[in-house]
């Protein structure tokens, strides 16, 4: 019994109950929508965290995979009349295929060079979204993406969409955690620490990096799919370079190599602009200031930082 109720399982249960309570208690349409966006961003941040936090490979072009997911489902459902549920695997697979092809040459790079490589890739994809007007609607955007539905349940009801997204978040968490605690997760952390030592352990570092890059792209495409069907309108701006940076910020602020950190980072970065409306024209200044303060005071991210503070106060209490 005690073994069954380990820490991970307990936290999933708490998380599940929290989703249910929030879903039932929050009435305001706008807040439910905001929470749904947090869920989508959490999936995005989790995807990048697997790559950046665990394997230590930076990607400054993750918005491209996010966009590929969104545009693929948009094009397939609107231009070709696919059911969204059929478009979903197509979107994810296409994104993963692109990640594989891009990853083959770029993952040979490391550090800043990998950053530059993925940055360039993100910009190219952004330009394709903008210029391929016949397919993507160009810079004026893509309208009329159908809402999701399963039988009688329509996800144009924002509350249903909220549950759908957050249950997906929960499942992604469970899958990611299992991956992290497996042979693969250990190999990723070994690569993060020293690629040479990892190779000496018999880890095929090249394949391992490629696999996690592809996995990460798949999660981003999933987030893109939800975004497209939630908002029903997408434009290239949503998948620009700035968005890639924002995803990186979510991971770093929330906490690298922490699944829950992705949730925290995504929540903070999605909520902050809302809270800061009161500062009107100084909004961006305060926003930047807060991010700077978090980085200066809690350089390991919110999750680790808060845990450290908790442990420090506890040990102070124990030894008067």
């Amino acid at each position: 019994m005690l073994k069954f109720l380990n820490r991970d399982r307990l936290s999933y249960a708490v998380f599940f109950i929290a989703i249910a309570i929030i879903g039932l208690s929050v009435e305001n349409y706008y807040y439910v929508q905001l929470l749904t966006f947090i869920g989508i961003n959490t999936i995005l941040a989790l995807g990048l965290n697997m790559l950046m936090g665990y394997a230590g490979q930076i990607s400054l072009g993750h918005a491209a995979f996010y966009g590929l997911g969104a545009y693929t489902t948009a094009v397939l459902t609107v231009h070709y009349g696919f059911s969204p549920w059929l478009a979903l695997p197509c979107a994810i697979l296409l994104s993963m295929l692109v990640a594989f092809l891009v990853g083959l040459p770029t993952l040979k790079l490391s550090g800043y060079y990998l950053g530059m490589g993925t940055l360039g890739f993100g910009m190219i994809v952004h330009i394709v979204f903008r210029e391929w007007s016949s397919m993507t609607g160009g810079s004026s955007g893509f309208i009329g993406i159908p809402p999701l539905e399963i039988g009688p349940v329509s996800f144009s009801q924002i509350r249903n969409f909220f549950y759908l997204v957050w249950l997906t978040v929960l499942i992604s968490f469970i899958v990611s955690k299992r991956l992290i605690h497996s042979r693969i997760g250990r190999a990723l952390r070994a690569i993060h620490d020293s690629e040479n030592a990892a190779r000496a352990m018999g880890i095929n570092t090249r394949n391992m990096k490629l696999e996690i890059f592809v996995f990460s792209a798949g999660l981003s495409a999933l987030a893109g799919f939800f975004y497209a069907h939630l908002v029903s309108f997408i434009s290239p701006g949503t998948f620009s370079f700035i968005v890639s940076i924002k995803i990186v910020t979510m991971v770093v602020i929330g906490g690298m190599a922490s699944v829950w950190g992705s949730l925290l980072g995504a929540s903070l970065l999605t909520m902050l602009p809302e809270w800061l409306h009161a500062f009107s024209e100084f909004e961006m200044v305060v926003y930047g200031l807060i991010l700077m303060l978090v980085m200066v005071l809690l350089p390991q991210g919110l999750t680790r930082g808060l845990l450290d503070i908790y442990e420090r106060t506890r040990s102070k209490k124990d030894q008067p």
Binding site: R183, R186, A187, R189, A190, D193, S194, N196, A197, A198, A200, M201, G202, I203
Partner: peptide, 18 residues
Amino acid sequence: LIFPPLSVMDNLKLGAYT
């Protein structure tokens, strides 16, 4: 060339990677 941030157990398990 051990992996300092990883636990002793994880280091040993990494040795058994293959």
